[in-house]
């Protein structure tokens, strides 16, 4: 009986807090928290020189495996029907999503995931898988456009050190951007070169 009363009182308290919170502006991750995260990442990556040769080999191997050219070292467009490369897409045709591979060399990390426009920036939505070479990978189907993203290494937000494009995040920081859309051109140039 009194237990039930306690529960009700507890519920009241929680409800009161939640009602108050409903009137507050939403908290946003502060820009310096992101910066601090990024700086700590440098510490994570500081192991890289020690495994420099291994890392270089891993990147080389990755490039070979993927067998696709890419401008950024870490984001690689890998899948689009090859035939589409030659033909201009018809405007009335919905473009097929491109499978984009994201990769980050972080041999010392325990968990790496990917967050971005495509998954609502939820850090748990897209976990990455660690390869034996310490390179974490995830593939995400993306439609044409510019997509901001960030890595989450052991709970810290980490900018892609090798991103080819950046966009201001509105909090004084910046987010890496991968551009999807000129894949056919890239594939074409790959064949040419």
């Amino acid at each position: 009986m009194s237990e039930r009363r306690d529960e009700r009182r507890d519920g009241d308290f929680v409800d009161r807090v939640m009602r108050q919170i409903a009137t507050r502006p939403l908290p946003r991750r502060s820009w310096w928290r992101r910066l601090v995260g990024a700086r700590e990442v440098t510490v994570t990556l500081r192991f890289r020189p020690a495994t420099w040769a291994l890392g270089a080999a891993a990147v080389a191997a990755l490039t070979l495996v993927v067998a696709r050219p890419h401008r950024g070292a870490t984001t690689v467009a890998v899948q689009q029907p090859a035939t589409r490369a030659a033909e201009a897409p018809r405007p009335d045709e919905a473009p097929l999503p491109t499978l984009v591979r994201f990769a980050l060399a972080a041999p010392a990390a325990r968990a790496v995931s990917l967050a971005g426009d495509f998954n609502g920036w939820r850090p748990d939505a897209t976990p990455m898988v660690r390869g034996p070479d310490g390179v974490w990978k995830a593939e995400v189907p993306l439609s044409r456009g510019n997509w901001s993203y960030s890595f989450v290494v052991d709970g810290k937000w980490v900018e892609d050190p090798l991103a080819e494009r950046w966009r201001a995040d509105g909090f004084g920081g910046k987010n890496a951007v991968v551009r999807v859309g000129d894949v056919p051109a890239m594939l074409g140039s790959a064949r040419g070169g």
Binding site: R24, S30, R33
Partner: peptide
């Protein structure tokens, strides 16, 4: 709640 953006998840 207000300060959650400054909380360090570590």
């Amino acid at each position: 709640f207000d300060a959650l953006g400054r909380f360090d998840v570590e």
